[in-house]
Simulated assay, not measured.
Amino acid sequence: MGKVKIGLIGCGKIASCSHTPAFKAIPGKAVITAVFDLKRENAEKIIKDNSLKAKIYTSVDELLKSGIDGVAINTPNSSHHELTIKALNAGVNVLVEKPMAVTLKQADEMIALAEKKKLHLQVNQSLRFAPAYVKIKEMIEAGKIGDPIHIRCLRASGSSPDKGWSPGAKWFVQKKFAGGLIMDIAVHMADMMGWYFGKASKVYSMSSIKIKGNDVPDNVTTLFDFANGATGVLELSWTIPVGGGLLEIYGSKGTIRLGFNPDGIEFATKPGKYKIVKPGKFKTSQEWFADAINGKKGCPVPGKTGRHALAYSLAIAESGEKSKAVTPSI
């Protein structure tokens, strides 16, 4: 097939800061030819800001009939299932933002249809493509830390995305759009923890709403009981003024840390003796997507992997609501 034609459904923050520049960075493999947004000005802006030679379509259906090979779906969480099903039925490969859906039934329908249509369904679980996180996975797989013992992840900011990262995007904090801290951040971090340590047998979560007017949790702490005997803690917040992003991974032979040193990953086999590990370069989600459309195997986040991330998120949410341990449906 060669260079693939890409469409964008949704031209907001994630499309402008992630998908568009990433596709532009692989001009020999992909080109954005079609865009759609409910707000036409968003589509016009993304074309102007990125000098795209793309056509603006007035409906999703028109865009899907435009001859594109793949589409990136960058819309509120509650719309991912419907748009993915529509794209697959139109014969278009799909790169959908996380979470891939809002229920496991929806995720299963998306996966089954992609298999039936023999199309590529990829979920943008971006940490699985991020160089530092991929390098850490390689280190764990190589036995650098020995047997996994404990993993701790903190991810915090001083405001919710509608006020900080993407001002005005209220869907991030609205239940009717399946917004909230869990579907926005836990879907990444819990997935990463399971990627590193294997399946969690149980999660126990404590959640709260501290921001006035929100109807979804903005503070969540979750304990992980992994099947291999290891444990984990995930701490998330939208109300810590100075923010924070830390990762600690402890094993029987060594420790890996991220976020403590601006130079990158730290690794130690003796107390206090950390050395810096450089991650190197790895393919982006968008390059994997283009390659997969052309038949290349091995994409890190096919639909089934995105389903795992969703299962963790839903288990965390259920545990927080019911104040009891929950087994993720993986």
Rank of each mutant, 00 (worst) to 15 (best):
K29R: 13
G179M: 02
E109S: 15
E97P: 01
K304I: 04
V187R: 01
E235T: 10
W195K: 07
A290R: 00
N261A: 03
K324I: 05
F36A: 09
K137I: 13
T20V: 15
F129I: 10
L258Q: 02
A107T: 13
L88D: 08
A315G: 02
L236K: 07
W288M: 02
K105N: 15
A142W: 14
Q174D: 07
K65C: 06
K210Q: 13
M100G: 06
L8N: 03
A22C: 12
G2F: 03
K3H: 06
I276P: 00
Y204N: 15
K324S: 03
T239A: 04
K65Y: 05
G320Y: 01
N261I: 06
N89F: 07
V92P: 09
E41G: 07
M100P: 09
T231S: 14
A43W: 08
T239Y: 01
A132W: 15
D108L: 10
M206H: 14
G254K: 04
E287T: 02
K322F: 05
A268K: 04
E318K: 15
Q286K: 03
E41N: 13
D263A: 08
G244H: 03
A315V: 06
I9T: 07
G7Y: 09
Q286P: 00
E248M: 08
E248C: 08
T222A: 12
A178Y: 00
G303D: 00
I145A: 10
K281H: 02
G146Y: 13
L246Q: 13
G91S: 09
I293E: 01
A15G: 13
D61L: 05
Y133C: 12
K53R: 09
H80G: 00
V233R: 11
D215L: 07
G28D: 15
T75F: 01
S329M: 10
R128K: 13
G158H: 09
T221F: 11
G70C: 06
R155V: 12
T284H: 00
I209V: 15
A268S: 09
I330N: 06
A311Q: 05
I209M: 14
K322Q: 08
E115G: 11
I256L: 07
V233M: 13
G7A: 13
R128V: 10
L234M: 12
F267V: 04
K270V: 04
F129K: 10
P99H: 05
Y196S: 10
I151P: 08
P131C: 13
A114W: 12
E287V: 02
I68E: 08
I32R: 10
D263R: 10
S59V: 04
L88K: 10
G180S: 08
K45F: 07
F260K: 04
A268P: 01
A101S: 15
A87N: 05
S157N: 09
G168L: 02
A87V: 07
F282M: 01
G143K: 11
A169G: 00
A107L: 15
I140L: 13
E318P: 03
V71N: 04
S208D: 14
L63T: 05
Y57A: 05
L119I: 14
Q286Y: 01
T20H: 09
G244C: 04
I85S: 08
K199A: 09
